[in-house]
Design a protein around this nucleic acid. Structure first.
Length: 424
RNA sequence: GGAGAAAUGGCAGAGUGGUCGAUUGCGGCAGUCUUGAAAACUGUUGAACCUUUGCGGGUUCCAGGGGUUCGAAUCCCUUUUUCUCCGCCA
């Protein structure tokens, strides 16, 4: 959520940059500014009334103490009308604030100045690529066939237990999951991230804090009986640790990592996109989150990109990093880099990580602030996060790219974790 | 799930209807003393919003929400959480 203050001070810039995200801002921005003006007016009036009520209450107290009951009773009478007025103004103020908030929630984050305009994936900028493209035998098959051949992932069984998109990992398939999770967490620790294990269900407040609610409500599984949501990413519980928190500037950056399963309803997905491990309702992911001082958040974004790049390099996967254009970016992000790895049998690039700087957009919703010695007032911090990494598509690429007549070769770096070299 | 008790500032802990945004202690910050540090002493120490060029002034906030009252941290209702006992249980 942008702050009204920022919008008011940068109207033209806001409208211009929102257009990069294909968001038409003129009307809504006008309304926001009007509502805020109204809000201030009402509060001003109401504050004055409250102040006189407080004065009268004090007077009445003093009169009673002095034994002047008649005068006290007279003073009491004056309050009735003021209270009515105040009540009405309070209602009006609450309504105005609600409307204002509803509008603010509709405005996406401003894309960073370096973000190009564009409509979709085709307009993204290639930043760099790396890794070696594998050359596969002519009889190479996609990962869903390999999963069946070596009996390491059973999609039909998941179907029976739960439904489509909930695979069962078996034997070495299961061990490979564990190995990847531990490898990613260990790498995170080496880069200075503190490990957290967090609840997989969150309440409404947390959903609002990171921006899943209200706009992406349909994408989360909702346990209505207790009004809890299954997390779509560890970002939600981890970032919400710092909801309503004022941290000392000297504690920044705060670096946190967590492994969690992620649950996504993925309403509206279909076709070859959802084949095999390409898109699941439940998947495993290690997430990294940083809270940083506003002047340093873009350095931090680069640092996080390097961390993720290091992971895919160590796994010896062919990868590319793209900077998302305005049209392809998320609602809450100011700048996003996507990581894709190449799955050679499908001959497709699969997105495995998204690393974003949200600047103060999430922090404003979270009321996550830092306090500087130089500055008396707390300021909004910047939040960043990235997948490091999401497992299923990494597994898909590993299986497809490393397939040989003798089985699937495990990358060197993972072998201490899997304690086997080959899936056969 | 049942019965009872509780929730106050960064922490501990007073306050049971009137000048209480809240005594006090610890912690934090600044100063005095000291070559420096510690100790001691002195001062200071929350957030949001409105208003003011500024100094300042005002409003709200004592777990959340609602109510009673001229006036609520204090009384009432309700939700949540914590603790104790009972029940169930990995």
């Amino acid at each position: 959520m942008l702050t009204v203050k920022f919008i008011e001070e940068n109207i033209d810039y806001v409208i211009e940059r929102l257009a990069v995200k294909r968001f038409k801002g003129e009307e809504i921005i006008d309304n926001i500014i009007d509502l805020d003006k109204k809000r201030r007016q009402i509060q001003n009036q109401n504050d004055n009334i409250q102040a006189s009520l407080n004065t009268i209450a004090k007077e009445v107290g003093l009169l009673f103490k002095a034994g002047k009951t008649a005068e006290a009773d007279a003073a009491k009478l004056k309050t009735a009308q003021l209270k009515d007025e105040s009540k009405q103004l309070t209602t009006e103020q609450e309504e105005t604030e609600q409307k204002l908030k509803a509008l603010l929630l509709q405005v996406p984050n401003i894309p960073h100045i370096s973000v190009p305009s564009g409509n979709g994936a085709d307009d993204n900028l290639l930043v760099r690529s790396g890794g070696k493209m594998p050359t596969l035998a002519s009889d190479a098959v996609p990962h869903w066939d390999l999963a069946k051949k070596y009996d390491i992932i059973d999609f039909e069984l998941g179907n029976k237990l739960t439904g489509a998109g909930f695979p069962v990992y078996i034997g070495k398939g299961s061990k490979l999951q564990r190995a990847l999770i531990n490898f990613f967490l260990d790498e995170g620790e080496k880069s200075g991230y503190k490990e957290y294990m967090v609840p997989l269900m969150v309440n409404e407040d947390s959903g609002y804090g990171t921006g899943q609610l209200p706009d992406k409500e349909g994408q989360m599984y909702h346990a209505t009986l207790d009004n809890l949501y299954l997390i779509p990413t560890a970002e939600v519980p981890v970032t919400n640790i710092w909801r309503d928190v004022i941290v000392n500037a000297s504690e920044l950056p705060i670096k946190a990592t967590a492994y969690t399963p992620c649950f996504r309803r993925e309403a509206g997905s279909y076709g070859k996109d959802v084949r095999g491990l390409n898109r699941l309702h439940q998947f495993d992911k290690v997430e990294v989150v940083q809270i940083q001082h506003p002047t340093k958040s873009y350095e931090t974004l680069e640092e996080m990109v390097n961390h993720v790049e290091n992971l895919v390099k160590k796994l010896e996967l062919p990868y590319r990093i793209v900077k998302l254009c305005g049209g392809d970016m998320g609602f809450t992000s100011a700048l996003t880099y996507d990581f894709e790895v190449y799955a050679a049998a499908q001959q497709r690039w699969l997105e495995v990580s998204s690393v974003s700087n949200f600047e103060s957009f999430q922090a404003n919703r979270l009321k996550l602030r830092y306090k500087d010695d130089a500055d008396k007032k707390p300021n909004l911090a910047h939040t960043l996060n990235g997948s490091a990494l999401a497992l299923p598509r990494i597994v898909a690429a590993l299986l497809e790219n490393n397939q040989t007549p003798n089985g699937i070769i495990i990358p060197e770096i993972l072998r201490p974790y899997t304690r086997f070299d080959v899936i056969d």
